[in-house]
Computed example of a mutant assay.
Amino acid sequence: MAGKVMHAVWYTRYGGGAAGLKHVEIPIPAPGKGEILMKVEATSINPIDWKIQNGFVRPILPRKFPFIPLSDVAGEVVEVGPGVKNFKAGDKIVATLGGPGAGGGLAEYAVAKESLTVLRPPEVSAAKGACLGIAACTALHSLTVTGGLKLEKTEPRTNVLVTAASGGVGHYAVQLAKLGNTHVTATCGARNIDFVKSLGADEVLDYKTPEGAALKSPSGQKYDLVVNCTTGIPWSTFKPNLSKTGKVIDITPGGCTFLNYAVQKLTFSKKKVIPLLVFPNAQEIGFLVKLAKEGKLKTVLDSRYPLSQAEKAWAKSIEGHATGKVVVEP
């Protein structure tokens, strides 16, 4: 497709929020060795995307300006580069473009590595498939890899807490946890309590109530595993609610998380907080796509915007009150 152009959205400096996004016409990229050119049918926004714009990991990311954000995509294969064996033009796919700092998804076309791409079955729409990258992989990784939870009903019961359970990562974490032998307590805003219960949570707390702010299980559970999807909760609030070997997996770690982690390592504490940074891989995405195909994992779409309204999608995510995922469809 040499010489042809596409519509894309990028930003050219740190800061600016939704107003910092610029619509441009640029050449369609060409796939290199082991790469796939795809027509993007949907891409999803994760909070890390606009945090990078805000300078969260400045000056490491973005690697250069101008930068086309978003890394979780779904679409159709247009062309394959040299060495690609498992995909052909016309295939429907889900891909991650290489972690939150890779970018490239907020455009009509994108290039993905074959090693980070999976086939998308008809049962999984492009909009929902595009959400199974960073958010769903973070939930899966938190529970199974870092948390050690087995997604099997035959395992001993594990008490799990998911904070901000109505958000992108949280709504996946509740569903995935319930695939195992778990008792799940969740926190969210009052308007989303019924929604989070519908995901399978055994008990749900309004985070604005005294009990919710204290993370107290209504049935007196002590948590073996916490997937913390929010910010601002101190270790002193988590600690009394944990079992003797309870772990808090912090998916948005700040300075206090890393400090507590270091101190707990030095003191051999059995209760601990663990900072998490996940880079999605094809094996995990493929597993999640399979669950979605089988109806065992659902993606809830808060809102969908055309590429021409990317700023509105960006602002919606920044607001921080999305129920499920925010999607842009070129």
Results as ranks from 00 to 15, higher is better:
83 G>W: 09
163 T>K: 05
238 F>W: 10
207 Y>S: 04
323 T>P: 00
324 G>I: 10
7 H>M: 11
107 A>D: 04
66 P>Y: 09
61 L>Q: 03
110 A>S: 12
293 K>P: 00
37 L>D: 03
46 N>R: 02
38 M>N: 02
319 E>N: 09
306 P>G: 06
208 K>F: 06
58 R>C: 05
286 G>A: 11
27 P>Q: 08
285 I>E: 01
240 P>A: 11
6 M>V: 12
236 S>Y: 03
86 N>A: 13
119 L>V: 12
284 E>Q: 14
282 A>S: 11
302 D>P: 00
236 S>D: 13
216 K>L: 14
194 D>A: 13
73 V>C: 02
67 F>H: 13
150 K>H: 07
215 L>Y: 07
261 Y>L: 00
210 P>D: 00
122 P>R: 03
7 H>N: 13
245 T>D: 07
301 L>E: 05
74 A>S: 15
36 I>H: 07
326 V>R: 01
324 G>H: 04
17 G>C: 06
106 L>A: 01
132 L>S: 01
190 A>T: 07
94 V>K: 06
310 A>G: 10
286 G>I: 14
115 S>C: 07
137 C>D: 01
18 A>E: 08
293 K>F: 06
78 V>E: 11
228 N>S: 13
104 G>I: 12
3 G>D: 14
37 L>R: 07
23 H>G: 01
187 T>M: 04
46 N>A: 03
329 E>F: 06
17 G>I: 10
255 G>V: 15
277 L>W: 13
295 G>M: 13
167 G>C: 03
129 G>M: 08
222 K>E: 12
176 L>P: 02
270 K>N: 05
170 G>V: 05
183 H>F: 13
123 E>N: 11
46 N>C: 04
285 I>N: 00
171 H>L: 08
6 M>C: 03
93 I>Y: 08
88 K>F: 14
98 G>Y: 10
309 Q>A: 09
84 V>W: 05
135 A>T: 04
56 F>M: 09
185 T>R: 04
181 N>E: 04
231 T>R: 14
187 T>Q: 05
290 K>A: 14
138 T>I: 07
179 L>Y: 02
68 I>L: 06
264 Q>D: 01
293 K>R: 15
21 L>F: 05
120 R>Q: 07
157 R>I: 14
176 L>R: 06
239 K>S: 12
228 N>A: 06
112 A>D: 04
83 G>L: 05
262 A>F: 12
144 T>I: 12
290 K>G: 08
112 A>R: 03
220 G>K: 13
20 G>N: 04
220 G>W: 14
229 C>I: 03
262 A>C: 04
179 L>R: 12
307 L>C: 09
53 Q>E: 08
35 E>W: 04
187 T>R: 06
